[in-house]
Design a protein around this nucleic acid. Structure first.
Lengths: 176, 176, 176, 176
DNA sequence: AATGAATGAGCCTTCATTCAT
DNA sequence: AATGAATGAAGGCTCATTCAT
């Protein structure tokens, strides 16, 4: 039954992602369980409380983001940046931040946020050194800006914001 | 007594704006009333229910936005666009959209949204005709994009997103 | 409406006392509210949560007990002791201790318990000095014993335990 | 396998006794199973539901009490009474009564209660005939009183209540 | 008209019990 | 036969809304 349990856990996560993305953070535990085809009790067996579920979604999302950042570390910085922006826009769980709100982060989440910060910071620094990323914004500002893009609910990969953001971030030669 | 009533109504709206901006959409009616220095009963005398209050905030915000758009109709399109982006980023109530969510809009709101759409559409068309706004995006895409920027909670006028968005929207000459 | 609110509060306390005494500590908030002829919301307006209600019952009971002890301070110690035992057996709320269980006590409750302890201690000491109370038990033991009698649910003033307890506590002359 | 089953059953009963004594009647079936080193399923194989488990504890306790009473039937009544009081105070499961509450008793329990009642009644009658037990209380009152002492949770053999009760029950010669 | 107490539907969570493995 | 995952009824609590004063 280990296999069943794992499938159920995944169904719950999937249902939660979908419902949160579609209807916002107000979705009830009952609705999530129902969407996963399970009873509430099962949901609570997998996640001790609502916060634990949200934390789990946040941690999964941040882990995937960190891994994506790591996987492009050796590519030209602009390519890595473009990949990142596209990747984020494609995430249905851009809303993680909006879900967790001001709640205290778990240790895992805190660590992941730190790792992502470092990776982003390095990426930005390299891109600016190579003059492909505009230099009048601090790494922190750009990171925050990317974060905004990441957290925007309903973002899609083919979103015009992707293009506009990238064009806005790219170094503008004099006269352009 | 009319004056008193008006003052109370304004206090409520102000309190609601402030609390929603600071603590998100989860603020309770009781909290809003208290922040306005009134009892809940008085709040309900002015707004039949929560949706009515939120609608009112939305309508006020949209009205101000429409008026801003109207007021820059005769200026060069790029200036008008820059003004618009800056204005929206400066609005503490960018969150109106997040408050109303998927709820059906009132007649007033529907009308206002339509008016804003037309004004935006015209502005975009003019800017593209003058080649100051990139032309590979449809007016609708740009409107949506602006809407995203408009609705982002916590936006401020000095936000780097403002600059980046504007640079991203501006026409890019060949070689830039 | 202050008067109504007070009456309601009293109704709640009365209903809670009755139900706890009759059906034990498992009674639900809904049942208490219903027995008081009120909705749950009203119960929660008066007591922020279950623990607060139980604490209130405990504090009332302890206050009454302390006042009773104070009121007999100037009477002969054996009379005071007999009054105390009879009083406790007559209390429907002997169950306070069983309700509060191991939960952390409020400041008021802690203070009251301390006051009652001191009063009991003095009473016992005087009674032993006058040789009307058996001396082979420490004041603490006797206090604990009285506490047991106090906390026994369902005790009544005409309970045989009252007589037996008093006779057991009284000094036994040699040969008796 | 019969041996295994018996051991498991005993483990469950032991765990339940310990947990109920230590943490009160609120202990969950899961906790009991875990303390017994078993899964809930196994617990439910031995006891169809919670009430059955509690009933079993009650029946065991009452059986032991009845056997104790039987075993002292031929000793002097006061000795038998003293033994009884001491025995009850030493029982960690004095709480059986608090566990069963007002729930309807099983046939076994009803029968046992009857047997204990008869034994107690006889004992009291003999002791009163011999003038070692105060005669101003009916057998029923004394039985009830003992029951109170029996059912008090947390009682210990060296409890001062034991001494006081016994002294209170003993016949008081004139002048004592 | 203003107030805030009362109401109750609905959410989160627990736990006795059932059932698939 | 043992296990522990799944279930769902029930309890504590919140908050939008109504209503008596």
């Amino acid at each position: 039954m280990r296999a069943d349990a794992r499938r159920n856990r995944e169904r719950i996560v999937g249902a939660a992602l979908g419902l949160f993305a579609e209807h916002g953070s107000g979705v009830s535990m009952e609705e999530i369980a129902q969407a996963a085809g399970l009873g509430v009790g099962t949901l609570y067996r997998h996640f001790p409380d609502r916060r634990a579920l949200v934390e789990d979604l946040a941690v999964s999302t941040l882990t995937a983001l960190r891994d994506r950042l790591r996987s492009t570390r050796d590519r030209p910085p602009w390519d890595a940046l473009a990949d990142l922006v596209g990747y984020c826009a494609g995430q249905p769980l851009a809303l993680v931040t909006s879900l967790t709100g001001a709640a205290p982060a778990s240790e895992s989440r805190t660590r992941l946020v730190g790792e992502v910060d470092v990776l982003l910071h390095d990426l930005v620094e390299q891109a600016q050194k190579q003059r492909v990323l505009r230099g009048d914004l601090s790494p922190e500002q750009i990171a925050g800006l990317l974060n905004v893009a990441i957290c925007r609910p309903g973002a899609r990969a083919d979103d015009p914001l992707t293009t506009v953001l990238l064009d806005g971030l790219r170094t503008h030669r004099p006269g352009a």
